[in-house]
């Protein structure tokens, strides 16, 4: 969906890289199994991370060898993740659906037609996901509604705008039964969400300037031609670092498990380095490489 939550591949052990790919394939299969083949279009790295995070206490990682449309000839190892993967699949459908609705409202005629068609295609899968997770659906809708209102007001209150979005993710931990761990997840996911929202806004700054769309950073800071002055850039980077640190501190309180190496790679290493590369404009290219690799 956003694609900022990816592991730092070069720092992963080969077995962990394979495991991450198995999780990615596993989420894809979960989407298909529970919500039909079309649901596979919403597959993304962010929710793969969520699936892994929600499996933090898994005692085993069962895998299967499966073929799929993307890999019809050679069977791929895919993680049979059970409930957490099903949750991540459902949540990603719900969030995609509501973001599509926003995209339809924001785009021009042709583009909105395309989004409408996509929403139409995903209709059945989405309804099934709503049926499975009605609370998440309501919550998601309310928060995105809140975000829309703030956007319409051209709000320069960065924290409030980011908060509207960041409040969505903590709800993804509704299935965690342990009260303490739910608290940890709430803090962790809040700051991940805040980080995603702000880094995305920064990444889109120039594009939004051209299209005239709302951008929370353009409203908060004084920008010239979609660029932030260095002083504000530093300020923003510090606030992102701070959110990354709060995420890491929260993560450290969770018990460690089989998925820890990948989670640590993402939380300790990748988030700070993605921040860095978005700020010096190298991120898009890097992401492109990942995606090409995955579709091979």
């Amino acid at each position: 969906m956003f694609g900022y939550i990816i592991p730092a591949k070069c720092e992963l052990k080969v077995k962990d890289y394979d495991r991450f790919r198995a999780a990615y394939c596993g989420l894809c299969h979960s989407l298909k199994r529970h919500y039909g083949p079309i649901a596979r279009f919403v597959l993304n790295f962010d929710f793969t991370f969520l699936a892994i995070l929600l499996s933090y206490d898994a005692e085993t990682i069962p895998t299967d060898k499966k073929r799929c449309i993307a890999h019809p000839f050679r069977k791929r190892t895919c993680c049979n993740g059970g409930k957490p993967f099903r949750r991540a699949a459902g949540y990603s459908l719900i969030l995609t659906r509501w973001r599509l609705r926003d995209a339809i409202a924001d785009s021009g005629f042709l583009k909105s037609l395309f989004y409408r068609l996509l929403a139409r295609f995903l209709g059945r899968a989405y309804r099934k996901a709503t049926h499975d997770f009605p609370d998440f659906d309501t919550h998601c809708r309310t928060q995105l509604e809140c975000l829309r209102i703030l956007e319409a007001q051209n709000s320069g209150d960065l924290d409030r705008v980011a908060d509207a979005f960041a409040q969505i993710l903590p709800h993804a931990a509704e299935g965690v039964t342990n009260e303490t761990e739910r608290r940890i997840f709430a803090e962790l996911l809040y700051h991940i969400g805040r980080w995603i929202y702000i880094i995305d806004a920064y990444d889109d700054l120039e594009q939004d300037k051209q299209t005239g769309n709302y951008n929370s950073l353009a409203a908060r800071f004084n920008t010239t031609d979609g660029k932030l002055p260095d002083e504000d850039k530093d300020w923003l980077q510090t606030t992102l670092t701070h959110s990354a640190n709060r995420t890491a501190s929260a993560y450290n309180l969770l018990p460690s498990g089989l998925w820890s190496p990948i989670l640590e790679n993402i939380i300790y290493l990748s988030i700070p380095s993605v921040t860095e590369s978005v700020f010096n404009g190298r991120f898009r290219r890097r992401l492109g490489r990942w995606e090409r690799k995955e579709t091979l």
């Binding site: 720092e11 980077q237 510090t238 606030t239 992102l240 670092t241 701070h242 990354a244 640190n245 709060r246 995420t247 890491a248 501190s249 450290n252 640590e264 790679n265 300790y268 290493l269 700070p272 380095s273």
Partner: peptide
């Protein structure tokens, strides 16, 4: 400074 967090052996943990 953007706060502190422990990051094991990885990077500058602050």
């Amino acid at each position: 400074s953007g706060g502190f967090a422990y990051r094991g052996g990885f990077g500058d943990g602050g």
